[in-house]
Each structure stands twice: as C-alpha cells, then as structure tokens.
C-alpha cells in the first residue's frame, strides 16, 4: 500500500473548448513530499492544482488520491476528500463579505460540530501561527495588504489541519521580504505537521528555499506532437544546473529568442 503514490495524475489531458492546456501529463507525489511546479504563464500549472483537488475534471485521464480515482467518488465523497486538502489561492480568495475571523472559521463552522469558543481559539492560534495579531480578526479582506491577505488565506487553509497543502503562486505580487515570510511559513507548516505540499510558482527563490523536487511544464503550443509536456523533473539543484535550454532560460530568467517567438 505504501508503494502507491499518495497523489497521482495519470495521463491527463485538459481542453477548454478548443484550447488545449495539458497534454498527456503524468505525475506522482509521495506522502510528505514538497513539490514545486514551475513553467511559463499559461502552461497549465494552476489547472494542474485544480485537477488535483477535483475542482476541474480532466478531459482525458484521471487523478488519483491514494490510488482511488477522484472521478469515481460521489459528490459527497469528493467534498469529504477535499477536506484533506488546504488550498492557498493566488489572490487568497478571501470571502469579501466576511471578517478575517469568519474567513478562518468558515471551514470549521461548515464541517465540524465544535463550539464557538473552540472555533475562536483555533482561529486565534492559526492567525498567530502565520504572524497576525488578534486585532486583525474584525477587519474585512478589503482592509488588508497583499501580504496580510495571503497569510489570512494560509491560516484559513490550515484551520482544518490538512494532509495536503496546495499553494497557487503564494508569493506572486509580494515584496521580497514578504515573499520570504511566506516561504518561511511554508517551511514552518511542513515542520509542524506531516503535510504533503505542492507549490505552483514562478519564483525560483521559493523553489530553491522550500522545494524538494521540481517539475517544469512546457506550454503545449510549443511542444512537438510526441514531446512530453513535463520537460524537467528533478531536484531544485539539478534545475539550476540544467543544460536543457528551456529549463536554463526559465530558471535564470533569460528571454533569449522568446520575445521574437512570442511576437511571431
């Protein structure tokens, strides 16, 4: 049983109308592993995360959690399976009409029979864990800075003590210090609980700091028909020293001929 990948994408292709985003992608993640998915904008990184949690159904192929295909789950089973995941959205996706405390408490109120006092204690603990003071509890998301929103989003994702954390571009749009704060929080989360983490990011500092393994997706439009979409799958160190031109260009942020390719 332990030989089974904890989370697996098996020969998945994803189309939106006539637009192909993922082509025959296979990927597995071991329990407790921290995987970073990198690649150009529009190559299907965020789509991959949404497939993993069952927010999207693959056009072809299947996604398996501990060997069981998400497609075979009933809506109720899928909803229960999703509670094993925590998801930090790119823009945090906090509920605008609720206060910070109500946002963090949302999942607890929805899925547990805890008393309100216990919920408030968990909310305070989670906010403290991500470095936010209790005075922030009554604020609405619109009153928060980008970094605070991300940290409230992380506190909300951690409230139900997930086994798997999915981070969708957790540091995008943040200053370098706040980027490092979020990276530290990802490391802290992993140190405090046995969690499997998948991080979609463009930031190579994040990859270098938190990831154990890196997968790079290539944009489908630039692939030859038989070429696999996963163009790299190894450690972060190997990514930085890779001689593959596509990986090298991405990791070191070198445009080379890309501007002309994009224009033409």
């Amino acid at each position: 049983m332990d030989d089974l990948p904890f989370l697996e994408i098996h020969r998945v292709s994803q189309w939106f109308d006539s637009h192909e985003v993922l082509r025959d992608v296979s990927l597995h993640v071991k329990r407790g592993e921290t995987l970073a998915i990198i690649g150009e904008s529009g190559c299907g990184k965020s789509v991959t995360l949404k497939l993993l949690i069952g927010l999207l159904s693959p056009t072809v192929g299947e996604v398996r959690l501990q060997g069981r295909s998400l497609e075979t789950l009933s809506p109720r089973e899928l909803a229960r399976a999703r509670l094993r995941f925590g998801f930090l959205f790119q823009g945090a996706a906090l509920f605008d009409s609720l206060t910070v405390a109500d946002n963090v408490a949302f999942g607890l109120r929805q899925n547990t029979r805890l008393l309100e006092g216990e919920i408030q204690n968990i909310v305070r603990d989670r906010l403290h864990e991500v470095g936010l003071p209790p005075s922030i509890c009554g604020k609405k998301p619109a009153e928060l800075s980008g970094g605070q929103r991300k940290r409230v989003g992380l506190a909300r994702a951690l409230a139900l003590t997930p086994e798997i954390m999915l981070y969708d571009e957790p540091t995008t749009g943040l200053d370098p210090i706040m980027t490092d704060v979020i990276n530290e929080l990802i490391l802290q989360t992993r140190a405090q609980r046995p969690v499997t983490s998948i991080i979609v990011t463009h930031e190579m500092t994040t990859v270098r700091k938190v990831a154990e393994r890196v997968v790079m997706l290539g944009p489908v439009a630039h692939l030859r028909p038989e070429e696999p979409q996963i163009v790299f799958d190894n450690t972060p160190e190997a990514a930085f020293s890779s001689e593959d031109q596509r990986v090298h260009q991405f990791v070191h942020g070198q445009a080379c001929e890309r501007l002309r390719e994009l224009a033409g």
Binding site: R82, L83, F89, A93, F95, Q110
Partner: peptide, 21 residues
Amino acid sequence: AELGTMRITEQFDALEVLGAQ
C-alpha cells in the same frame, strides 16, 4: 455583480475547497 466578482476571484472555488456548495 457580487456573485460575479466572487466567481472571478476564485471565491467559488474556495467555498468548494472548504466543503460548501
């Protein structure tokens, strides 16, 4: 407008992830 904004800012997805339809 409110629901549309929620949809495009992934708040619908967040609801589903947190166990709410």
